[in-house]
Design a protein around this nucleic acid. Structure first.
Lengths: 115, 115
DNA sequence: ATAATACTTAAGTGAATGCTACAGTATGAT
DNA sequence: ATCATACTGTAGCATTCACTTAAGTATTAT
């Protein structure tokens, strides 16, 4: 534990910290989409969207391929799962402490040492 | 869905994108700690750690209070849970598509139309 | 009283970010 | 052949980041 570096996680969390990129991920969680489809709802130029896409791809969260003139993007669910995993691992520990506290309180109230 | 802005999530994901700050969160998931305790394993000055702590607090991921000269930090598990929630929501959708695909494949192989 | 501890705050710096504008290049439609 | 579509790529720019150094301020220990 407490391994200091993890490029993949750094990049993944960074990628998800931007609302535009999260919107793109939200769209892609519903299914593949072209670059213009991803761009349509966003208040920025296509150029900007392409740059965001690059960030997402370099974080491993999205993959894309071109057929004809349209690039189709898909979500990389494994990478998303790895991000989720980091959080659930932390959760295990704080939950454990919470459960211990609960058990302690239950035990001390049943033995009634506070009366 | 596709609400474009969420300051809290922006800040939370951004806060988690730094390996030093993640190390601090990892430590705090085991229980409260002072600023120097958080700093000890990290390859940077105390000053830098305090600045990271500020980022974590502004993201709502950590709270802290001072008693005497030591500041004790604790993890805000609710904020962590909210980050987790954003991911599991996306997961719901991509899982659904996966399940549909699986069901389709199961059905088409049982009707044996590929022989 | 003196010194060590545990932060706190501010200024400065080089690098990374999130854009836009503009100028392309393929590909598909008419 | 011409035009629209769907990107692609680069330069520039204001802002934010992740630090460090340096100079504090309270507390606690001796």
């Amino acid at each position: 534990m407490l391994q200091y570096d993890s490029q993949p996680l750094n990049k993944a969390f960074h990628a998800l910290s931007d609302p535009g990129r999260r919107a793109m991920i939200e769209r892609l969680s519903l299914g593949p989409a072209s670059v213009s489809e991803l761009a349509r709802p966003l208040p920025m130029t296509l150029s900007a969207v392409v740059q965001h896409l690059k960030v997402l791809e370099e974080a491993g969260l999205v993959k894309s391929g071109k057929v004809g003139r349209v690039r189709t993007c898909t979500l990389e669910t494994d990478a998303m799962a790895r991000v989720e995993h980091w959080i659930t691992e932390r959760k295990r520990f704080w939950q454990q402490r919470y459960d211990q506290l609960e058990a302690y309180l239950a035990q001390s109230s049943s033995t009634g040492e506070n009366e």
